[in-house]
């Protein structure tokens, strides 16, 4: 199967008062069409900036030094004109954020925001066509009364409802890649579980590839086919979700797994201080496709 995303040896540094600060030390990451891939790491590990590079946002930041190869659907994102990169966003690739309520514009109705998203791909789409398509999408994310929601403003809806709207909006243009940055972290656990299940089923139906960025190992295990573990700007482990969770090979991955409290109540883990072993070479699980 062809890769929808192929990142090779990506480096990122920020220019500051005290010279360059390296954030990514050459990461490589591939996502096949329709594949759900997770990028797991702690805050500051470089997982969110990776998403911003894929979206083509950091390349235009003056202080950022980006190098390496980022190919999206066979096209080189790094060499693209900023205008062409912008054209990809919201059409070929879309994004879901952590806090759904604040990522929707509070001053426009859901229907109008849907229309704006759809006009990015089909500028001449009529109002009725937009509404019909939006209604269809809202039904797909199990929103009971789509007509009412289309006329509503984001603040009139619950967080879980807004999250579903975000998912529907992100998929309405049939993107090839969906970037999900800590989706649902701002929601209650039960709502989060529901929306993730919904998102899982939906991207499967649509054949959308997903890069799922998260710090929550449990959520990753339930959502992703394949996992990359990132630590301080380096990928330390990669493999099929089952393989990584059953036999974590890298010291950092093991520490991360051990640190998660278990509902079986095996007690609080002894967590190693940051150790040199965390910087050991990457572990790759063979069976990964």
């Amino acid at each position: 199967m062809s890769d929808i995303l192929d990142i090779r040896d990506l480096t990122l540094a920020f220019k500051g008062h005290r010279g360059l600060t390296e954030v990514l030390h050459g990461i490589s990451l591939r996502i096949a069409a329709g594949e759900r891939v997770a990028l797991v790491g702690e805050s500051g590990s470089g997982k969110s900036v990776t998403a911003r590079i894929i979206l083509g946002l950091l390349q235009e930041t003056g202080s950022a030094r980006v190098a390496g190869q980022v190919a999206f659907d066979g096209r080189d994102i790094m060499a693209m004109h900023p205008r062409d990169r912008a054209a990809l966003r919201g059409t070929e690739m879309s994004m879901i954020f952590q806090d759904p309520t604040s990522s929707l514009n509070p001053t426009f109705t859901i229907g109008r925001q849907f229309a704006e998203v759809m006009h990015r791909r089909a500028p001449r789409l009529s109002r009725t066509a937009c509404n019909a398509r939006a209604t269809e999408m809202l039904e797909e994310v199990s929103i009971p009364d789509p007509a009412r929601v289309l006329d509503a403003y984001p603040f009139q809806l619950s967080g879980g409802m807004n999250q579903r709207v975000m998912i529907a909006m992100a998929l309405v243009n049939h993107p090839k890649l969906l970037l999900a940055d800590e989706p649902g972290t701002a929601l209650d656990v039960s709502v989060q579980a529901q929306t993730l299940r919904l998102m899982h089923d939906l991207v499967e139906d649509h054949g959308t590839a997903v890069l799922f960025i998260s710090h929550n190992l449990g959520v990753v295990r339930e959502f992703a086919d394949r996992v990359y573990v990132i630590y301080r700007g380096r990928i330390v482990e990669e493999g099929a979700t089952d393989a990584v969770f059953h036999a974590p090979g890298h010291a950092y991955t093991r520490a991360l797994m051990d640190a998660v409290p278990r509902i079986t109540g095996v007690g609080l883990p002894e967590v190693p201080e940051v150790s040199d072993a965390f910087l050991a070479p990457m572990v790759r699980h063979g069976s990964a496709s």
Binding site: V189, S190, Q192, G218, R262, I263
Partner: peptide
């Protein structure tokens, strides 16, 4: 029960309990 059932889990023992 619903709250416990919604907890994302990482190992098989947890999954079994859930």
């Amino acid at each position: 029960r619903a709250l416990i059932g919604a907890v994302p889990v990482v190992d098989d023992a947890e999954l079994k309990l859930r």
